[in-house]
Design a protein around this nucleic acid. Sequence first.
DNA 1: CCATCATTCTATCAATTCATTGAATGATGG
DNA 2: CCATCATTCAATGAATTGATAGAATGATGG
Lengths: 218, 218
Amino acid sequence: MTSQQELLDTLAQVARALGNGHRLALLERLAQGDASVETLANTTDLTVGNASQHLQHLRRAGLVTAQRSGKQVIYRLTDERIVNLLGLLRQVAETNLAEMERLVSRLFAEDDADGVLEAVSRDELLAGLVSGEVALLDVRPAEEYEAGHLPEAINIPLEQLEDMLGKLPLDREIVAYCRGPYCVLSHEAVQRLRQLGYRVRRFEEGYPEWKAAGLPIE
Amino acid sequence: MTSQQELLDTLAQVARALGNGHRLALLERLAQGDASVETLANTTDLTVGNASQHLQHLRRAGLVTAQRSGKQVIYRLTDERIVNLLGLLRQVAETNLAEMERLVSRLFAEDDADGVLEAVSRDELLAGLVSGEVALLDVRPAEEYEAGHLPEAINIPLEQLEDMLGKLPLDREIVAYCRGPYCVLSHEAVQRLRQLGYRVRRFEEGYPEWKAAGLPIE
DNA sequence: CCATCATTCTATCAATTCATTGAATGATGG
DNA sequence: CCATCATTCAATGAATTGATAGAATGATGG
């Protein structure tokens, strides 16, 4: 066994840690912010024991670290670049696997026929923020908003959307964002707000990608 | 099973395709240029049948495509970004797994004590090329050089290094490169040329990374 | 159309992975 | 120190993966 092969095997071990849907879900949750095993188990629909086991796996691959805090063990991503890694994996998969396209279009099934709901790219969003023509709306649960959010974003969790319309500006276009490209919260929010007559589009990425790109957060 | 979960499972399937040392070796070879099953099997020390099986796996994950050319089947990477994906995987692994550091340092074991052999970064190399202060040396086999190489690079395969010293300029620093960060060819070349008194360092990446970054090739 | 070569397919076995269950560990509050 | 809660460990069985060997397919040159 050459060093070369051992090196590739070690890399393969890291890739294998990414090779399970539940573990990817755990990583995506951790990209929103650190969390305890129980929190992680709840948000990913795993039993605590099972979640713990997957977290150990991710830890052996160097993707997460654990830190005891009182009774709980808090997990976190070891490296901001893991978000980039997942993003690149997603891009490659979307471009080259027909299956992915099918699933993505089904996820956003109720999409618009006119193309008016086209998502806002990162560059476009940055331009809109700089010029002050855009207001940001964070539709994630308050807990995730508080763990970190885009600058000057207003938080209205999706469930309370209709109750808190007063917080939305009427003089600017609204851009809604949530957890990432596959998160349906902002998509749903855009649908509902458009029906109410708001000028609103959705950000094509989410909070973790924004943060991993080194852009400012609050 | 929600769409969300199916999406992550599909992503996981792609990651799993990366989760095997032999398949990573195949991808690294393909990053140098397209190749037939037999060529791939030879350069990765696999039996043809086994290589074919792994290539099918990569194909199902959308990472490679196959095209018949006469008697042979030629495989190629579906996407230039796969090189970036592998690079990012490598970076994350190197930063967060102690095991990786150990293996990398062993791979380049005969390294210098003085730090004079410090590798040249991409930006540094670009600056050197623009100012004309640097000459490029490609130490890969002629076949790989011909499939594509950095602009104005001289090709001297490592085995013929001492026979073709005449092709090397004496008035500029030489930067040697080969297949990628874990390829030892350029490292070995630098060792030997330094002993002969040449002013030479090694490029910290390789041909595939250069190409994937969209930089010019010949 | 036959012989040959490159590749893929099929079947098999050993090894690994994953979910589940229940026991063990470790920290906290009384 | 004991009871409780959060997490991890250990054992089991089902499913998947990987290597090997040999048969089957598909293209080419005579």
